[in-house]
Amino acid sequence: MDTKIKKNRFGSKFMKNFSRELAKDNLALVATVLLVALFLFIVIGQFFVPKNIGTMSDILNANLSPLTNGHILGTTDSGADFLLTLIASSRNSIIIGVCVAVLITVISVVFGMIIGYFGGWLDWVAMRLIDFWLVMPIIMILAIIFSTAKGLSIWNLILILSVMNWPPNVRLIRTLTLSEVNRDYVEAAKISGTPWYKILLSGILPNISSTVISDFALTLAGSIGIETGLTFLGFGLKHGTSSLGSMLTVLSGSSASSVYTKWWLWVPVTLVLVIMTFGIVVLGQVARRAIDQRQSVS
């Protein structure tokens, strides 16, 4: 009971700081409003998206320009409504970004804190592994893995992206943990007999949480970027799954010279990408400031 009350205060204080930080920063406010508007648009809009939007082929209605036959942004080259395809793609991007970021953050917090806290041979082995991993051409390896399956379902893509991209995050959390481990409060907790998992969870984690949150936002935006890029190259989500990357292929190669004047084929897609990724990263920074402030004030 007691802890519950404490927790509520904790959360409401964070929200207060958060909104104060937002109010101070006009740009962050605009980015957040745009992001929330986009998010609502996607959530509401996806109820109108037909299930077969990625696989339908309606040649008679293909490549319509905006505002014809009731299609606000025209149709794609397979005859699906462009706006609905955009909504389905954005939804997939958000699912991928959030899931990958959650998985990577959990992995990196758990492993990073453990290897940073215990050190020794475990740390040595993990760091050699991570150093080696950072040398590898990750984008190329991802492209090869994705091309082997001739396109993946969203969930497989999430798993592979998380498995391939954790090392930099683990290294970051380890470094942060190392800087906390020798502080007096950890020493005091150790001497008084606190078990290690309690020190990690209620001692070190709150102190590094500000960076964890901004790192989460960066990973989220980065995963959306990787998925979009690889699907654009043709080594990503399987055919039939809408993706912002495959919507951008109209602008690649020789077709670009004839297509660039049709702004509706690429401007909305790039706008969605910009609002989504920029908004997420800015939001992460605001959240970091809100948490940092809490640490300094009380």
């Binding site: 960066l218 935006a221 959306i224 970027g225 990787i226 979009t228 890029g229 654009f232 951008l248 602008l251 670009a256 660039y260 690429w266 790039t270 990408l273 910009v274 990724t277 920029f278 997420i280 990263v281 800015v282 920074q285």
Partner: peptide
């Protein structure tokens, strides 16, 4: 912040066009 957050292919397209 923006150039690091937004996927680089978006900027490549804009510059190309």
């Amino acid at each position: 912040t923006m150039t690091s957050a937004v996927p680089s292919i978006v900027f490549y397209f804009i510059m190309m066009v």
